[in-house]
Design a protein around this nucleic acid. Structure first.
Lengths: 342, 342
DNA sequence: ATGAAAGCGCTAACAT
DNA sequence: ATGTTAGCGCTTTCAT
């Protein structure tokens, strides 16, 4: 009981370890950190004592020395929204494995809160900061000439000397388009979110690009509306009116696609038999709850987070910092809504 | 420019402040912390110098002294799932306002990872730990006799000497039941999640209890199944078969309720005209996307997180630590699916 | 009312 | 090969 790793009593310091091993405190430090030259036997004795006493170095003291703090800050502007969460998860994943701790803050889109949090993070000597968001639109950076590297994930800094990691919305749109063409559909409509969203415009551009190469156009033109199921329901009716023979609909989000699916069913069109359907986001509860389950584009948000974290670790380790915008490829998840022969 | 709060140059220490104010370093410390006795003029001079230089105390150094670290750990077993996120948000909210930083870790339900993270948090001298989860089932605590207070939110520790904050599932069920009775329905069915979930059993108990007091029983018995829309669709058919005259259906989740709503529509029952519908979770995308929008029970997860954080702050501040299980009242959100006269 | 000094736990020069 | 010493930035006695 008394030699368990975490005794309730006083903290065991390196001084205790040194005493127990019969060496000086400096020697103990070197032994434990694997630096300096010393007899193997001594090193072993110190290590053994440390283990026996359950010694755990105090990171505060280590950090104070000007050494590393093994901490990074994670700022979300999104109240842990649907998009920033997978990103954070990926980041935590990559960082946790690297023994880095994560200080979390939520700015709730308030620049004042953000400024405040950045300062707190710097006070705590984080070694880097990851900023996540919910939209891909450029935003002001969190500060110039910060003493630590910063990376933007699922959001873009206006400052081109920052690195921003974004999903490849255009590529995702292209992916959907090629998939639909491959299943033999050529009359392809598009119902998506507000024109004010770059994500919506880029997904549409990806679709149009591929169709254009094939000498085709978007059936019934691109329909912009809310990011909601309700708009999906309305949009589907509009599209069916504009082009009753539409063979496939690519939607800007899974929510929109669900609404579209409902209207199609109510209008007597079978999915995918009459009309194939592709969503965007691969948001499991939506995509799987849809009838039929939805083929959809996955932005690989977790990968974006992991890349952001790894970038940070790289820069911290001294690598040159990449800058500008980098795009992470999307991935198509095929389900019933486009399956052939149904 | 050069007197901005965050200069890129060397960090300004209290030593610099003292020098600038023409006092000793100890005096500067006392002045800034508002302790000790000294001339008001001196204190003002130090404060002014600190502000002018942009002095920010180093929390590492402060913590090292055995003082406070103003940090708490937030452990989620849930990979930031749908339930733990609102809890975390609430906690971050309450803590951030109190100038406390949050160290985040995700255990991914792995006890080894959990143990590891707990130790890392303790190494970093967090002043307390919040454990969040996705299920209300009791789980082993993260450790006995930890040197800091621990509170469980949206998950329960097996150890009764811990404090666990849970949603009031039974109360939520009762809330739904009373609301349906108040709208004049007496034949009330219940379609919910697996019997293995305490949450499902308690919500059912809440419903049955209220119905029992009114001399009623659950119409067609409680139907247990998956937490999915698909089950909602199936369950609705089963219920309609068992009791074709059912007037209302209370569902164990919003997802189930959506499935139920779909089947009802396809079977020609109007909601809420023929059958009223109540969900559980108040998960916006589901509840609002439903046709019609869903009346549902909100567990006040954010409040659970806030309470957890405040409890922790209280214990840290020296208050006696409450123990055992404490339940947070749920709240009914009324929407179209039960609105009268539709 | 102010200053000097010790020390939190640790590491990294510099001595031996 | 090991020990000694000087700090990291701060707070807190204890002198003055």
């Amino acid at each position: 009981m008394s030699n368990s790793t975490q005794d309730a009593g006083r903290t065991v310091t390196i001084r205790d370890v040194a005493a127990a091993a019969g060496v000086s405190i400096g020697t103990a430090s070197k032994a434990l950190n694997g630096v300096g030259r010393m007899r193997e036997e001594t090193r072993a004795r110190v290590t053994a004592a440390a283990r026996r006493l359950g010694f755990r170095p105090n990171p505060l003291a280590q950090g104070l020395l000007g050494g590393r703090t093994y901490t990074v800050g994670l700022i979300t502007c999104d109240s842990f929204g649907r998009f920033s969460i997978p990103v954070m998860l990926g980041a935590e994943d990559a960082l946790g494995d690297g023994q880095i701790s994560v200080l979390l803050c939520d700015t709730r889109d308030d620049p004042l809160r953000e400024r405040h949090h950045v300062e707190r993070l710097l006070d705590r000597r984080v070694e880097g900061i990851i900023v996540t968001g919910r939209r891909t639109e450029p935003r002001p950076g969190i500060g110039r000439d910060l003493p630590v590297p910063v990376v933007y994930a699922m959001t873009q800094s206006l400052d081109p000397s920052d690195l921003s990691l974004l999903p490849d919305d255009e590529g995702g749109g292209a992916l959907a388009a090629r998939h639909l063409l491959a299943t033999g559909r050529t009359r392809i409509g598009h119902i998506t979110g507000p024109h004010g969203f770059r994500a919506a415009r880029q997904r549409a551009a990806g679709l149009s690009g591929v169709l254009g190469e094939a000498g085709l156009r978007v059936a019934g033109d691109v329909l912009h509306g809310e990011w909601s199921e309700e708009w999906g329901r309305q949009g589907a009716d509009i599209l069916l009116q504009a082009d009753p023979d539409v063979e496939a609909i690519f939607c800007g989000s899974d929510q929109i696609a669900r609404g579209v699916a409902e209207t199609l069913r109510e209008r007597g069109r079978r999915v995918p038999g009459d009309v194939a359907l592709v969503g965007f986001d691969n948001w499991a509860p939506m995509a799987l709850g849809c009838r039929p389950p939805l083929t959809t584009v996955d932005m690989n948000l977790g990968e974006i987070g992991r890349l952001a974290a790894r970038h940070l670790l790289g820069v911290i380790a001294g690598q040159a910092g990449e800058t500008g915008v980098r795009t992470v490829p999307a991935r198509l998840v095929v389900r019933e809504s486009t399956r052939l022969g149904t």
